[in-house]
């Protein structure tokens, strides 16, 4: 099987400081990869390099495109990369307001990606938006309300709906449960797990929260100081961490 994404030797430096160094892995269709580490470990730098928000100094990010097969997204033209960004790729930000248009109704937020790819039937767009609100457990009568009137958890669910409405083949998530109350986190995780299962989503989830990867990720990479120090099946890494740093990470979460 062709990997959906092949990351080869991705390196990003900030002057003398290393953002991430020589990261390589493959993601297969329907797989969820978790990337864990403390803040400053390079996991967010890696995510932004893969998603095209940052330009790495070295490496390849090869995506299996629908039309042309595997292509290095780093050498694509900007229009091609942006097109990918609003069709086959999706990006869920930690802070919902970074990923939503706060001045636009919930329906408009979900409908934007549909309109961006050329849908021009208001009724259809609204219908799909309403369906998606229900799928993320937002009452359909909130379709015309702005996200500013939503709770933090609802905003995050709206951001997820907005990202998934075009059926992306790869979803990047940056601390999707960060900044939410614990009870709200649990509900969001449940929802994400359902969506991942039902849609067969392929995703890369960056988080410092091991509970998130335990629930969602098939495989795990542990990062420290820009390097991947351990990688493997999620249960394996969490239950029997080999690297001293992974052991520290796992033990510290168990104490919480």
């Amino acid at each position: 099987m062709t990997p959906l994404l092949s990351v080869n030797g991705v390196t990003k430096r900030y002057g003398a400081h290393i953002g991430c160094a020589d990261v390589s892995f493959e993601l297969y269709p329907g797989e969820v990869m978790g990337v864990v580490g403390e803040s400053g470990s390079g996991k967010s730098t890696l995510l932004n390099c893969m998603a095209g928000h940052l330009t790495p100094d070295a490496g390849q990010v090869i995506f299996d495109t629908r039309t042309d097969g595997p292509r290095d997204t780093l050498t694509m033209s900007e229009p091609e990369r942006r097109m990918l960004g609003r069709t086959d790729w999706a990006f869920v930000h930690q802070h919902a307001r970074d990923g939503l248009r706060m001045g636009v109704s919930a329906g408009g937020n979900v409908g934007e990606r549909l309109m961006a790819v050329g849908e021009r039937h208001y009724g259809d767009i609204r219908g799909k938006a309403t369906d998606w609100l229900e799928r993320v457990e937002i009452a359909s009568n909130r379709v015309d309300d702005r996200p500013t009137t939503f709770s933090g958890g609802m905003q995050q669910r709206l951001q997820i709906a907005r990202n998934l409405v075009t059926g992306p083949r790869l979803v990047f998530m940056d601390e999707p449960t960060g900044g939410l109350d614990v009870s709200v986190q649990a509900r969001l995780l449940d929802l994400l797990r359902g969506l991942v299962r039902d849609m067969g989503l392929s995703a890369i989830i960056v988080t410092h929260d091991l509970a998130v990867v335990r629930l969602l990720a098939d495989r795990l990479m542990v990062m420290k100081n820009g390097h991947v120090v351990e990688a493997g099946l999620t249960d394996q890494v969490l239950d029997d961490p080999q690297h001293a740093y992974s052991q520290l990470l796992v033990s510290s979460v168990l104490q919480v």
């Binding site: 609003r86 636009v104 109704s105 329906g107 408009g108 409908g111 961006a116 379709v143 015309d144």
Partner: peptide, 18 residues
């Protein structure tokens, strides 16, 4: 420059929804 005009229809969408 990239002809990304979906946003223009978001404005019209908002009009109709309101």
């Amino acid at each position: 420059s990239l002809e990304e005009y979906g946003l223009m229809h978001v404005k019209l969408y908002e009009d109709i929804s309101r």
